[in-house]
């Protein structure tokens, strides 16, 4: 059976797995965005907490993915929950770091002006700081997504959802004639998902960046 046949025969399950893959990535990135932004703002505001927050999030990225997935099994069991938690932790560093960098690069004069016009600190953050830092934050999210799309493949090892299952099936049937098709299908599927996410972020960046700084 050649690869083309395999694709046409398995179009539906492959598509479903791809959707699962996208969902688990989207969910993890969504959570990581909220958490990462909050930590980033905290790190930006407090010079004392900054090194600690950055050190912890970069430590998380150092831990081997299989180990991180496994560590949550005793707490959360197998399946989607440990996968999402681990992926969120992996996604943190780029988002946190870029939030800190983005906020740090906002011109102090602009903030001073906003203050001078009587904007309160919350309004200043929402109307001035965040929009100006947003492109940098978004770049961080994009990097995180690339990392997470690939690592999500490994989630299949803890019975997580997604295209990793295709690879894992191929891996379990090493030596059989289907192995290559399965692995290739899963791998290429993940590459396609990654590229789609990337295209989405390019689009998102265009749409959500304030016109004046595009």
């Amino acid at each position: 059976m050649d690869f083309y046949e395999y694709l046409t025969d398995n179009a539906e399950p492959l598509f479903e797995e791809a959707v699962d893959h996208v969902m688990v990535v989207a969910m993890s990135i969504g959570i990581a965005l909220v958490l990462g932004c909050a930590l980033g703002v905290l790190a930006h505001r407090s010079a004392r907490l900054r090194p600690m927050i950055l050190a912890v999030s970069s430590t998380l990225l150092t831990i081997p993915s299989l180990a991180l997935f496994a560590m949550f099994i005793p707490l959360l069991g197998l399946g989607t929950p440990p996968a999402v938690v681990a992926l969120v932790l992996y996604a943190l560093l780029p988002i946190v770091r870029n939030t800190v960098v983005g906020l740090g690069s906002v011109d102090r004069g602009v903030l001073q002006a906003a203050r001078g016009m009587g904007m309160g600190s919350w309004r200043r953050f929402l109307r001035v700081e965040l929009p100006l830092a947003w492109p940098v934050v978004l770049t961080g999210v994009r990097v995180s997504t690339q990392v997470v799309v690939g690592i999500a493949a490994i989630a299949a090892l803890v019975n997580g959802p997604g295209l990793g299952n295709e690879i894992f099936r191929g891996l379990r049937s090493l030596g059989s004639p289907f192995a290559l098709n399965l692995v290739l299908g899963g791998t290429l599927g993940i590459v396609v998902v990654a590229l789609l996410f990337d295209a989405f972020f390019i689009l998102l960046r265009r749409v959500t960046t304030a016109r004046g700084i595009r």
């Binding site: 690339q146 799309v149 690939g150 690592i151 999500a152 493949a153 490994i154 990793g164 690879i167 894992f168 191929g170 891996l171 090493l174 192995a179 290559l180 692995v183 290739l184 899963g186 791998t187 993940i190 590459v191 990654a194 590229l195 990337d198």
Partner: peptide
């Protein structure tokens, strides 16, 4: 190339 998952790449190489 970064978009290629590590698990997939290594499995392919081993295959």
């Amino acid at each position: 190339g970064q978009a290629i998952p590590s698990l997939g790449l290594i499995t392919l190489v081993v295959l």
